[in-house]
């Protein structure tokens, strides 16, 4: 049991230590002790957050300095060691409208590489009873990759990211591939912004389950005119449970 006086003393000591931590003057061992306390004590964490907020105007002293090229690709390699993901194009920001990319897609091999990425959290979150289905779709030999996540609860398929350049000429259309001799069923045209959500028609929702194949084809703007895939399939992958 702490007396009010002790408690008051603890509070100003905490206040000071939080301030010293945010300033950065403490030793490494002391910083680690403070960080451990932040992780387990919400009230103390709030004191630290308040100092951070109070001192944030000092952040104006940090002028912007562009880091050298190549740092971002190292970050991607560390975070996603098993996939290639148009690293250079993304790092330079040109991938969205890259003609080379589209030429690569059109001429590239149709052989596909299916890569599963272990995601350590749910995509949509907050619905542990029905983990979303995900598939990562990648075309071998070209720099396109996208992830599809299907939320069983609301019937929405979230596709991200998609290289959607050349919007005036082409659309990316998403297909459910039933297998056997059955033709692919269109699930809709991906939004031209390059990522987004496709609402799955109610009659097709029961068919989206674990292990089904999704594919993306390159179609005339607005989607396939015939209802069947007419352009090259640029990416394909199977759904699986994300956790």
């Amino acid at each position: 049991m702490t007396t009010p006086e002790q408690s008051e003393g603890d509070r100003s000591r905490d206040e000071l230590l939080a301030g010293e931590y945010v300033l950065g003057v403490l030793s490494l061992a002391d910083r680690e002790r403070v960080a451990a306390r932040i992780a387990r004590d919400r009230a103390f964490a709030a004191i630290v957050a308040r100092w951070q907020d109070n001192l944030a105007s000092f952040n104006d002293d940090y002028d912007e300095v562009r880091p050298p090229p190549g740092v971002y690709s190292k970050i991607e390699t560390r975070l996603f060691p098993h996939t290639t993901f148009a690293q250079e194009l993304i790092a330079t920001g040109r991938w969205w409208n890259s003609l080379l990319l589209w030429r690569g897609v059109a001429l590239g091999s149709l052989a596909v590489l299916i890569t599963y990425v272990a995601l350590d959290t749910g995509w949509i979150g907050g619905r542990p009873q029905s983990p979303p289905l995900i598939a990562e779709l990648a075309g071998e030999g070209n720099s396109i990759s996208l992830v599809a996540a299907y939320d069983v609860a609301d019937g929405r398929l979230r596709v991200t990211p998609v290289a959607a350049g050349a919007a005036d000429q082409h659309s990316l259309e998403l297909w459910l591939v039933p297998g056997g001799d059955d033709p692919a069923i269109s699930l809709g045209v991906l939004p031209q912004t390059g990522e987004g959500t496709v609402e799955i028609p109610a009659n097709l929702r029961p068919r989206l389950s674990e292990g089904v194949t999704l594919a993306v084809s390159l179609e005339p703007f607005g989607g396939s005119p015939t209802g069947k895939a007419t352009g090259p399939v640029i990416a394909v992958g199977q759904t699986r449970r994300s956790n």
């Binding site: 971002y72 970050i75 991607e76 975070l79 996603f80 993901f85 993304i90 790092a91 920001g93 995601l119 959290t121 995509w123 992830v147 991200t160 990211p161 390059g194 990522e195």
Partner: peptide, 8 residues
């Protein structure tokens, strides 16, 4: 949401 393009 684990969006790699978002990170870029």
């Amino acid at each position: 949401l684990r969006d790699r393009a978002g990170l870029a």
